[in-house]
C-alpha cells in the first residue's frame, strides 16, 4: 500500500482574540488521510473550519495541537512545498502586476527556468480563459478573474498535490463547470486534489471521498455515495416497564433516556447497543412499543448547523 499524500492527526486550532482573551475553537482535533490520485472533498458549511485547516497545512497558521504530514514531510518542508500547488480562499494578487508577471514570479520561486515559465504561463492562462487579459494590471480584474489567476498560479509548478480552498467561489455557472473539468483533468493526469466546498452538488460530482466538517469537528469520512444515502444514525425505542426496570436500565445504559406521554424513550447509537437494550427490556418483563430508525441526510446535518459558529468560550 502506498503512503497517504496528506495525513492529518488530531489537528486543532484555537484562536485567542482581543483584550478579553476570547477563545474560539476553529478546528477541534481532526484526523484524516488523503490517498494518492484521489479527488478528496473537504465539505462543510461556512465557518466550519475548512479554511483554517487548509492554512495549517500550508504553513500559514501554526496549529495549537496535532500534526500534519504532506508528501511524507512536515508542514513547511521546501522539497514538499515544491510538489504542492495551493489556491487560497478569495485570492487577491498584486495591484500593479499583470497575470503573466505574477506567474513568472511564482515560477521563479518554484525554480523554473525562463523557457519553462514562458511555456507554462501561456498554457495555463489559456487554460483558465485569461489569455486576453494576461498583460493587464490585476487591480482591474474581477473576482472571477482573480479566482482564475489563483488556479493558474496553483498549477504553475506542475504539482502532485493540488490544494484548493473553495475553487468555485466567485465564478459564474460556466466558470464553475470549467473548474470541475479542470479538477477531473488533474485527476486524469494522476494528481491528487484536495479541495474544500460548502456546496454538496460540487462535491457530489467530483469527489472520490469526502470529509465532512461541522463546527470544527470531523463528522464523517468516506465515499460520498455512502454518506449521501440516508444513513441511520440513531434508533429510537419506545417502551413500557415498571419503575424498578426503568431505574435498572437507566443505570445499565447511561445515555439518552427520556419519558413521553406514550412511555419511556431510549435512543440507541449503535445496532449492538440496541440489541442488548431490547433483550434487557424483555428479560425484565417490560414491553417494546416501537423501534424507529432516525435517518439524517447530509442536507439536514448542514441545515441544522448552518449559521452557528463554534462554541465561543471565555476563559
Amino acid at each position: 500500500m502506498t503512503a497517504p499524500v496528506l495525513e492529518v492527526e488530531g489537528l486543532r486550532k484555537e484562536f485567542v482574540r482581543g483584550f478579553l482573551r476570547k477563545r474560539t475553537v476553529a478546528v477541534d482535533g481532526i484526523s484524516f488521510a488523503v490517498e494518492p490520485g484521489e479527488v478528496f472533498g473537504f465539505l462543510g458549511p461556512n465557518g466550519a473550519g475548512k479554511t483554517t485547516t487548509m492554512k495549517m497545512l500550508m504553513g500559514l497558521i501554526h496549529p495549537s495541537a496535532g500534526k500534519a504530514t504532506i508528501l511524507g514531510a512536515e508542514v513547511g518542508d521546501l522539497d514538499a512545498k515544491r510538489r504542492i500547488g495551493y489556491l487560497p480562499e478569495n485570492p487577491y494578487f498584486y495591484d500593479y502586476l499583470s497575470a503573466t508577471e505574477y506567474l513568472h514570479m511564482v515560477g521563479r520561486i518554484y525554480g523554473l527556468d525562463r523557457a519553462t515559465r514562458d511555456k507554462r504561463a501561456a498554457e495555463l492562462l489559456g487554460r483558465v480563459g485569461l489569455a486576453m487579459a494576461q498583460g493587464r494590471a490585476m487591480r482591474s480584474y474581477s473576482k472571477g478573474m482573480l479566482q482564475r489567476v489563483g488556479l493558474a498560479q496553483a498549477l504553475i509548478g506542475d504539482p502532485e498535490l493540488v490544494v484548493l480552498d473553495e475553487p468555485m467561489s466567485g465564478l459564474d455557472p460556466i466558470g464553475r463547470r470549467e473548474v470541475r473539468e479542470l479538477i477531473l483533468d488533474l485527476r486524469a493526469q494522476g494528481k491528487t486534489v484536495f479541495f474544500s466546498t460548502h456546496i454538496l452538488a460540487d462535491a457530489n460530482l467530483l469527489c472520490d471521498r469526502v470529509a465532512i466538517i461541522v463546527k470544527g469537528k470531523l463528522r464523517d469520512v468516506g465515499p460520498l455515495g455512502e454518506l449521501l444515502s440516508p444513513k441511520v444514525h440513531r434508533i429510537e425505542v419506545l417502551w413500557q416497564g415498571d419503575e424498578a426496570l426503568q431505574a435498572q436500565l437507566r443505570e445499565q445504559f447511561p445515555a439518552s433516556h427520556s419519558s413521553s406521554s406514550e412511555g419511556q424513550v431510549f435512543v440507541a447509537e449503535a445496532q449492538e447497543q440496541l440489541d442488548r437494550f431490547l433483550a434487557a427490556i424483555l428479560a425484565g418483563g417490560g414491553e417494546v412499543s416501537s423501534v424507529t430508525p432516525q435517518r439524517e441526510t447530509l442536507e439536514q446535518l448542514f441545515v441544522r448547523d448552518a449559521g452557528l459558529s463554534p462554541e465561543e468560550q471565555r476563559s
Binding site: K81, Y86, P88, P91, Y92, F93, V106
Partner: peptide, 14 residues
C-alpha cells in the same frame, strides 16, 4: 491586509 501573502507563503520558499 490584501492577503496577497496567503498565496506566497505556501510557495516553495522560507
Amino acid at each position: 491586509e490584501r492577503k496577497t501573502v496567503y498565496a506566497i507563503i505556501p510557495k516553495p520558499l522560507h
